[in-house]
């Protein structure tokens, strides 16, 4: 067993994430997993980790970790661009970085976007729960969010080498989020006029957004064609669920597996990486299609 990494500063919300739990939705288990799947995958690729190796997901203000006294770490910080420092000196973002034994790795506040990913060669290795190390903040499965002074175990160093320097960079998150929405299954719960208005209007990302969903505000509410509630039904990643206030919520990885508010449409998974990097106040537009 390898030495452990000390959490020196936990940040606003830092969780262990991998690709999450699949195949258990019928038991009430959310999928969970890294919200910006591309940024998360890039970190592992840079370090030669097998896909699905667990990383840390920070929220807005980064995290600080100390390498074990007896061994160096190789890390890569991806996702929301942010300053990276090792033992007080600037280090590269989105590239493999060596952290000497006992040295401090400081992942700073995001310059843009919301969530940075801290991958380590070998991966963070808290115990798996139902096949995943992801912290599921809806149901409490997996390791709890990081707290200062705790230690994270590391996994075995992979056979594959650390990647070269030619790995493509991830584009910075756009100033405006544009989400394609395929309408259905419950489009008919809403008036055609208000659905059309959704496609023409600009909303803003609400501060109440979290790993469960990206909440919207400041746009025209969707008007229902019918009263009453929908019997609970299965929910998918990217579902645009519309609660009674009429303001759409886009379901992210920790979304509940069933829900009783109608789903107007679905945002494809490849568009959710940008959604995961959307700060409160960012303009959001929807492009509707069938």
């Amino acid at each position: 067993m390898r030495a452990e990494v000390e959490v020196v500063r936990a940040g606003a919300l830092t969780t262990v994430q991998d690709r999450g739990r699949t195949g258990l939705a019928h038991l009430g288990v959310p999928r969970s997993g890294a919200l910006d799947a591309q940024a998360y995958a890039l970190g592992n690729r840079l370090l030669g980790n097998p896909p699905g190796t667990a990383s840390l997901e920070t929220t807005l203000d980064g995290v600080a970790l100390r390498a074990p006294a007896g061994s160096a770490l190789t890390v890569a910080v991806t996702g929301a661009p942010c300053p990276v420092r090792v033992a007080g000196r600037p280090a590269a973002w989105a590239a493999p970085v060596r952290v000497p034994p006992g040295a401090l790795l400081e992942v700073g506040s995001a310059a843009q976007g919301l969530r940075s990913y801290v991958a380590v060669r070998g991966g963070f290795a808290p115990p798996e729960v139902l096949g995943s190390r992801s912290a599921d903040l809806l149901s409490g499965l997996g390791p709890p969010p990081l707290t200062a002074g705790t230690f994270l175990p590391l996994g075995p160093t992979p056979e594959t080498p650390v990647a070269g320097a030619d790995t493509p960079r991830v584009p910075a998150p756009p100033a405006e989020l544009v989400l394609p929405v395929r309408l259905g299954p419950r489009e008919n719960w809403f008036t055609p006029q208000s659905v059309a208005a959704l496609g023409r209007s600009t909303y803003r990302a609400a501060a109440a957004s979290n790993r469960i969903g990206l909440r919207t505000e400041a746009g025209p509410p969707l008007a229902r064609t019918r009263a009453g509630e929908l019997p609970s039904e299965g929910m998918v990643l990217g579902a645009v669920q519309v609660p009674p206030d009429g303001l759409p919520v886009i379901f992210l990885a920790d979304h509940p597996v069933t829900g009783g508010y109608p789903v107007l449409g679905v945002v494809p998974p490849q568009s959710l990486d940008a959604a995961a990097q959307t700060r409160p106040g960012t303009p959001i537009r929807f492009t509707l299609h069938r």
Binding site: G23, A25, E233, G234, T258
Partner: peptide, 15 residues
């Protein structure tokens, strides 16, 4: 099919 999720009046097939 990754998920078969029954609910009150529906079964969702996801993935």
């Amino acid at each position: 099919v990754a998920e078969i999720v029954p609910a009150a009046r529906t079964v969702l097939l996801d993935g």
